[in-house]
Amino acid sequence: MMVCAVVSARISPNFIEKIHSVRLIPHVARALDLNVVANFISRACTCLPGTIVAESGDLYNLEIWRVKSILGRDFKYPETIAERTAIEMAHHTSVAGRRLIIDAREDDTNE
């Protein structure tokens, strides 16, 4: 069970100026590989304009040009304080979201 959190925001170099939307997409997969992650990110970012920013570890430390060609979107790894803050926010959201979904499932099973 995986959850991808997307924070769509307008940023300046050191501050998040405005958060447009936060999106949580759950996904169930038997195994994890680059294709699964790339499809998951593409699906989560559908209809959201702008550059995708993600942690390098999430995309197996691939070079940016390779990730761009896989996703077919403008992409970069975080560089500024604001980009890192936005990623931190998405990370907290995904962890909390995943926990909520799992708790809800456990409750359903118990009932």
Partner: peptide, 21 residues
């Protein structure tokens, strides 16, 4: 220059800088 600025941003983020820059 871009790389050094990015490294500085990372260090400032690690230091939890909230002040204007």
């Amino acid at each position: 220059l871009r790389r050094k600025l990015a490294a500085s941003h990372k260090a400032l983020y690690d230091c939890e800088v909230k002040a204007p820059i």
